[in-house]
Write a protein that binds this DNA or RNA. Sequence first.
DNA 1: ACCTGAACACCGTTCAAGT
DNA 2: ACCTGAACACCGTTCAAGT
Lengths: 232, 232
Amino acid sequence: MATNTEPQHPHRAPLTAEQVLQTAVRLADRDGIEAVTMRGLAREVGVEAMSLYHHVANKEAVLDGMVDVIVSEILATVDDIDGPPPEEEWKSAMRAQILAARRVMLRHPWAPAIIETRSNMTPSIIAYFEKVLGTFRAGGFSWDLAHHAMHALGSRALGFTQELFEPDDGGDDATMEALTQMADRLPNLVGMMQEVAHDDPDSTLGWCDDDAEFEFGLDLLLDGLERLNASS
Amino acid sequence: MATNTEPQHPHRAPLTAEQVLQTAVRLADRDGIEAVTMRGLAREVGVEAMSLYHHVANKEAVLDGMVDVIVSEILATVDDIDGPPPEEEWKSAMRAQILAARRVMLRHPWAPAIIETRSNMTPSIIAYFEKVLGTFRAGGFSWDLAHHAMHALGSRALGFTQELFEPDDGGDDATMEALTQMADRLPNLVGMMQEVAHDDPDSTLGWCDDDAEFEFGLDLLLDGLERLNASS
DNA sequence: ACCTGAACACCGTTCAAGT
DNA sequence: ACCTGAACACCGTTCAAGT
């Protein structure tokens, strides 16, 4: 056979939706979510942009699928936890599950923002919520309290809270200086920053330990839920 | 003077950034945030798209400014509340402030998503946080506890929580049916839906009262913070 | 000082055509 | 069945030019 006229796609296994989504996640992890365009994703997959539409309906479907990949990873991780059975210690079981979910999320920093723009329930998200609900129920929660609990946790159940301000963004010094200049008009903010930063002198504005704050809020909610569950 | 050759912009007061931002908010309220493009906003303002750049740096600055308009509205609303002084009843004062903020947010449904994509602190957001912090301090919170409290509230301080799934989206029946078909694999989700929906028979999936759930989560946090504050 | 039109470099997506 | 190239209707933004 003529060696120079070989087709550009020699007997390559045809693309699957699964491959496209896995590649999209990898691309977002590596280059950020803004790199995930149909054209950019196609290049990464090794195909023309328009070929993607043969495997996914449109870009929304790509984002839905990426969320599904992440939540599936969370589900697999959570299933691997061997802790106390939730029937005996629902609270520590729940805590361990959610912190495991958080560890997955931290590996995919783009995921929270994308999840929050989804309105479609994906199968894996449904499965995850089923599991969380099951843990509450194993702990003796009424349907009603379990329902409230799901709402109260919100995205925290998936291991993240939306930080209103990027903790370690650039411009810390500038922001710090601007705040200090307004100190007389912002006594509480400045007071808090000085006081809390004092405990950790080698930080400027980076005095927020995201993980610790996440656990603080989580425990506040879990403790409150425990109390409501006990008194019902 | 020749009536036919009048300039297209007769002695019109020159555009200001304030007008551009106010118009952007009105446009988002009316047509949704996706209608706020530079071209669309310019049309609404009555000018060519490129003229906007004389008053705002770029689109990011427009979004920053829109957030500032909303938070300023919240600040004004919160300042109008006459409740108990926070020194005596910090919890009900805080509760009233946050629920007032929520009422503003509900009038601008696009705002939460935009706020969550901002990483810049705007002056009005700083001022609002200063006020919330002040309420905690008036209630006797240590700097440390007040700091944790701000993180625990997160975006709830501004009156919203990100709902993971649109409550009253279309396709309720379809989703409901799909869930019922998977009932054996989703005992907890289906059980909860049947139980909770039972209390409010004329709803299908619309059994989540967003406002009530917001208050439930808020009170859970405030009660927990009160307990921590008392025991310190 | 303020506004404009044309243009550029991107998007997501459609469609007719290739193998 | 799968992939492609050209094209369309949008974006945000730059730039030189108008008044």
